[in-house]
Design a binder for these strands. Sequence first.
DNA 1: AAAACGCCCAACCGCGAGGTC
DNA 2: GGACCTCGCGGTTGGGCGTTT
Length: 257
Amino acid sequence: MGRSPCCEKAHTNKGAWTKEEDQKLIAYIKVHGEGCWRSLPSAAGLLRCGKSCRLRWINYLRPDLKRGNFTEEEDALIIKLHGLLGNKWSLIAGRLPGRTDNEIKNYWNTHIKRKLLSRGIDPQTHRPTTGAATLTAPQRQGIFIPITVPRDTAVSDSADDGRMSSDASHDEDRNRCLDLDLSMSLLPHRSPKQSPPSESPTTSTAAATPSTSSFTGGIRLCCHLGFQSCEACSGQPIPNPCVFRYFRPLEEGQGID
DNA sequence: AAAACGCCCAACCGCGAGGTC
DNA sequence: GGACCTCGCGGTTGGGCGTTT
């Protein structure tokens, strides 16, 4: 059928945004909120396509953006999350409040990739570039990589797209450190029919969906991010609410021997 | 001082998913 | 069920800027 262009290219500006354009976009979104990107440019008096406006807002103008250099903790978190999720920059960004997928993607390509390569680690597979193709028994059965990051820069415990709430009730926890342990293990696979409809195939809060249903066979890979405890992969209900699980069913031919 | 080079990052492009008619 | 539309994502590009020669 042929894809329709996202906008009338002949009548739109391209390239760098001017301050005036930024101000128009900010002013419009302040009044009307985000969304309806298709109609936003004309409504806001901008000669841009909606896509361009959305990108500009998300990557540059949003008030909750952090800006500035990445911290060592963010570095480590990005590497761990990339190991789990691959190039799913939006998912990774969802776990880094104030950072955008574009920013993380750029940072990965310009800094972290090089850093990993210099350490002899393949940035795609997260394995040593020389040899070491086979996993040890502990690696096969569960990889446990604890790292510690300040709570403020760590994963969210709510479903608000990964952004931390600044609830005053959490103030006493402000200085508490998060033990961001990532672990992987193999679990019996529950058939899709039995999955709760709300459970995302990528990430979900385990506390919201305790594993009480039966398993019917097969294997699935479970990864979790959480505070201290490591029971997420035991197949038992998880009492700790600050735990994230990433389920990825093994593809055909990926079974264990 | 200026040309060449390399890096960084904002922005663009194409595609897929999901929704609506 | 399929055509069309909108949105969001990941890959890529190119211009600006700092560093090196």
